[in-house]
Amino acid sequence: MAVKRLIYSVFIAFVASVATIVILASLSPRTEKSAAEKERLISLDELARHSRVTDCWMAIAGNVYDFTNYIALHPAAPAVLTKWCGQEATEAFNTKGYGSPHSPAARGMLPKYFVGKLREK
């Protein structure tokens, strides 16, 4: 009987946690970009100007991201990331250099760092 009550409690805790995360996500300051930001076009030349650890932009699948504040959070060593600063990095992101794509969770983190779309030549 004790086990049954424990499982029931765990279930309620799970539902409450999931609901809390979803509610907080919708109420928290959004990382959504303004319309102007979403429409900003960035050329490869402009992208290349942000090629340092302290100012690191990358282009992935047509979108440009400012990863400056993310480098410290990246699981692998910063050097793995920073050699792509200022460059088109779609292939590197999709393969990590050895055929292994990033997880869906990682892709879910991208929107926060979006700064504009890559200008088509």
Binding site: V18, I21, L24, S26, S28, R30, T31
Partner: peptide, 10 residues
């Protein structure tokens, strides 16, 4: 990263 990223995982 963000609470929205956490919700996006779920």
């Amino acid at each position: 990263v963000s609470i929205q990223a956490a919700a996006a995982v779920l």
